[in-house]
Amino acid sequence: MLSLQHISKYYQNGGNKNFVINDISLDIDEGEFVSIMGPSGSGKSTLLNIIGMLDEPTDGYHYFVNEAVHQLKDKQRSALYKKYIGFVFQAYHLIDELTVYENIETPLIYQDFKGAERKAMVADMLDRFQIVGKKDLFPAQLSGGQQQLVGIARALIAKPKLLLADEPTGNLNSKQGEEIMELFRKLNKEDGVTIIQVTHSEKNAEYGSRIINLLDGRIESSKKF
């Protein structure tokens, strides 16, 4: 599904190059559930952002669903990720001024779905996550777990092929975290959504089908289950 070849990201600091990502090559197939681990500053989030096209590598080749991402223009790239990728964040990143319903609806607006269609899709999603009763609340009125549920619902609304999650349970207690992980596993198994998550937790990482360990911008180890 995606292939990174010799990807590097560094900052020029005088004569030195400070590498955040140092020559990483990585292939991920459709249907995989990958956990990326590593200590703080090892480049996990940067790698995830590069995969999600929010960040650009300094060097290297990046292919996604057979497109050479490194050759695409901004507009094409954004069209590409709009269509295929959903994001989930540690801090949920819901829009505070919008209700649960509107937050979930927003990606559809940017993908030019018609009003009636949007209504049906959001209703479907609210139903599936059992948050119909909360659709008119604002994010500040929800617990952390509920907010993250909304965040995932929003990430899935446009039926992405790839779900990127940056420490999705980082701000949650262990019970809420477990529920989210169960949800991810279900999405991966039943709906065939490819998932890449960054996590600090061994336990959460084990939900995945592959664990990649990063250290100082390099892949230290990679094991499949």
Binding site: S78, F87, I95, Y110
Partner: peptide, 16 residues
């Protein structure tokens, strides 16, 4: 800035 960041991630382009 946060709202803008989210919107961009959700697929908004600059002109929108």
């Amino acid at each position: 800035s946060k709202e803008v960041g989210i919107r961009k991630v959700l697929g908004s382009n600059r002109s929108q």
